[in-house]
């Protein structure tokens, strides 16, 4: 389905879109929107690995985004760490947390898993909201500039903040997509997809089901964490909303809308749901309503998501 050649086509399409879209941007503001799309797409690709490959659900992935974001906000101030190293630290903490909570949680199936991850996400968001002394509470806190842009300026390359973060997020997204596509057609990816199809059969061919599920969960947590860090760095400001339940649901909706098994689809889903509130300002007020509606409509009419459904129609329903 997506072996060998398909990987490079997907990556080329993504690279071209990232590279060429700025040519049609009507204003500098759209660099900001683009960067936001890329960051969202990154966390959604993580969910593609968890939901699409391994068939597990998480309704608390914003918790990991929160960990990544606040690592970049807190570590430079309290540990004197460079913001980029803080991103790595956040990813490490997220991975460790995912491994710790994933071990017992991933024994659960279906609804139980959804509820358990939901609980985790709420826990993180509550801590971020309530630890005012550290996090500034619901008002959020400032995030130090990583100083990379001024470094580039010293080298004679002047970029606006929007342009700079558009480029960085785009690059990270490409790397994230490359890793996810590599994983798809690798022994681990096959094992994940196999247990998605039949846990019993996967086990009888030697797949350690619990271990592979945990692997998918940890990897997807790192994606969400890095996305959260990038969001914090590019906004220079962060609030506990990043870890909120709504953000978790938003991620899953983006994945489901675009096509939960497809890396390109994830990007498309992220793009649509990120653009919507920019185009329709009323959307912001009714976001929860719209997300729910999108989810219901996709489930009824396009259960495989937008991109796989379109691809299937183009191929003319292969036998």
């Amino acid at each position: 389905m997506m072996a060998g050649r398909g990987k490079w086509i997907s990556l080329a399409v993504l690279a071209l879109l990232i590279g060429l879209l700025p040519l049609v941007f009507p204003s500098g503001y759209y660099f900001r929107v683009g960067a936001l799309i890329f960051v969202n797409a990154l966390s959604v690709i993580g969910l593609v690995i968890l939901i699409g490959y391994a068939g597990q659900i998480s309704l608390g992935h914003a918790g990991f985004a929160g960990i990544g974001a606040y690592a970049c906000a807190l570590a430079p101030e309290h540990l004197g760490l460079h913001p980029l190293l803080s991103l790595v630290l956040g990813a490490g903490i997220s991975a460790a947390m995912a491994a710790l909570i994933g071990k017992p949680i991933l024994r659960l199936k279906g609804y139980y898993l959804a509820v358990a991850t939901l609980g985790f996400g709420i826990l993180v968001s509550m801590i971020l909201t309530n630890e005012r002394a550290l996090t500034g509470g619901p008002d959020g806190m400032n995030v130090a500039d990583p100083g990379l842009r001024s470094l580039l300026r010293d080298m004679g390359w002047r970029l606006s903040g929007g342009e700079f973060w558009y480029g960085i997020s785009g690059l990270v997204l490409l790397v994230g997509a490359w890793l996810a596509l590599n994983l798809f057609d690798s022994p681990s990816g096959r094992a994940m997809r196999a247990l998605h199809g039949s846990e019993v059969a996967a086990a009888t061919v030697g797949v350690d089901v619990a271990r592979q599920k945990l692997r998918a969960f940890v990897i997807s947590a790192v994606y969400a964490s890095v996305a959260g860090s990038l969001l914090a760095l590019q906004n220079g400001y962060i609030t506990p909303d990043v870890a909120g339940f709504l953000h978790s649901v938003e991620m899953v909706t983006m994945a489901v809308l675009g096509g939960v098994g497809s890396v390109l689809g994830a990007t498309l889903g992220a793009a649509i749901l990120t653009l919507l509130p920019q185009v329709l300002t009323v959307f912001a007020e009714y976001e929860q309503l719209v997300l729910g509606l999108v989810m219901v409509l996709v489930m009824i009419f396009l259960p495989q998501g937008l991109l796989p459904s379109i691809a299937r129609r183009l191929k003319g329903r292969d036998a």
Binding site: L179, S186, G197
Partner: peptide, 29 residues
């Protein structure tokens, strides 16, 4: 107990899991 969504080849490749598995880094990269 077939992996319905996977290709025929991928189904058999899954059977090679024990001989083709390695570190997760090798798979990602």
């Amino acid at each position: 107990q077939i992996f319905q969504e996977m290709t025929v080849l991928d189904n058999v490749l899954a059977g090679y899991h024990l001989s083709e598995r390695g570190s997760v880094w090798a798979d990602l990269l």
